[in-house]
Amino acid sequence: MANKSDDSIATYFFQAKEFNLDGVRLLPGEYFVTQKKMALVTVLGSCVAACVRDKFTGVGGMNHFMLPEGGDGDERLGRPARFGTYAMELLINQLLRMGADRRRLEAKIFGGGRVLEGMAQTQVGERNVAFVLGYFALEGIPISAQDVLDDYPRKVCYLPHTGQAFVKKLRLSGRDEADSAERAYLARLRGRKVGGDVELFV
């Protein structure tokens, strides 16, 4: 069963004093979209964050996710690809609902560091980044900036109304809160079913 925070809209609000803006902090598995002047903040290890906005209206958002392990048959239809596509679609659908035009979307991507060492997870970051790059290429959404891979965690702050993103490299530590949250998220994904409900009306 998925944790209640997975596939959810982020709810941890705070004051981003450095920008003098309301802020929201995204945990692994969450996403957030806004039309307001806000700071969207997350800390990434091996996970990736896609920051997407409508260049004209400024409505924009961010997600924070990683692909589950494994594959079942055709790579394009495997669990990781279907889950990643779903995570991206939640973000993009929310953007469209809030008035974004798909043709004006631009993306910035971050994360995918080689951070979860010692868990046979050295390829986790690379897989996540490869997926996101492939997704945006297929969807025809241009990537205007990226800071991915390498071997350090990152704190990312995204301002959708301007499109600016600020990245701070963090010291690698296996004991901090962000690392624990990502490991817990990965563990939850292992047992997660990638398939939604079906209801026939006849």
Partner: peptide, 17 residues
């Protein structure tokens, strides 16, 4: 609509429906 399938879709389940 005849039915409602929630994403992410599961290929065998989609074919079954």
């Amino acid at each position: 609509a005849t039915g409602w399938l929630v994403k992410p879709f599961d290929p065998p389940r989609l074919l079954e429906v």
